[in-house]
Amino acid sequence: MQIHISTNDGVPIYLQVVNQIKFLIASGRLAAGAELLPIRVLASQLLVNPNTIARAYRELEMAGIVEKRRTNGTYVSEQGSPLARRERVKILTERIDALLAEASNLGVELDDVMKLVQQRYASIQSTRVNQSLQNQE
């Protein structure tokens, strides 16, 4: 559970924790049913106030992304998957918006952007195939 806190950009720390845990779940690095680090452990690891971590976990719990089980521990919800999908779309949308803005600044037309995306996809796929072939040898 890798989380990185920055105090330079003004985003409240609890929100940084919430966003990064959402990201970890959406990207599959925290699977449904996985246990989050205990509040004190994460607080000591990140060197932030335990109340801040507790606040972040509460937000995630209210959003149904994680759940408390009995008294011990906080776990990624089993029904977290549709939410994770929505979160994935949201993350991608932000990236796409940034890409489109950049393309527009550079004067690249949408058609060309689409072509480039497909080229990159093909190139990445062929690298992957080569790698897995090599691994099999």
């Binding site: 720390i13 004190r40 607080a43 060197l47 335990p50 109340n51």
Partner: peptide
């Protein structure tokens, strides 16, 4: 910072600290 966090993780205890290192204050202060 670790000592501050451990101290308040114990119920009911209080920490007062002065600092001009504001990133530290932002991390640990309520």
């Amino acid at each position: 910072l670790g000592a501050i966090i451990r101290t308040i993780a114990d119920e009911g205890r209080t920490v007062l600290f002065s600092s001009h290192l504001l990133d530290e204050v932002e991390r640990v202060a309520d």
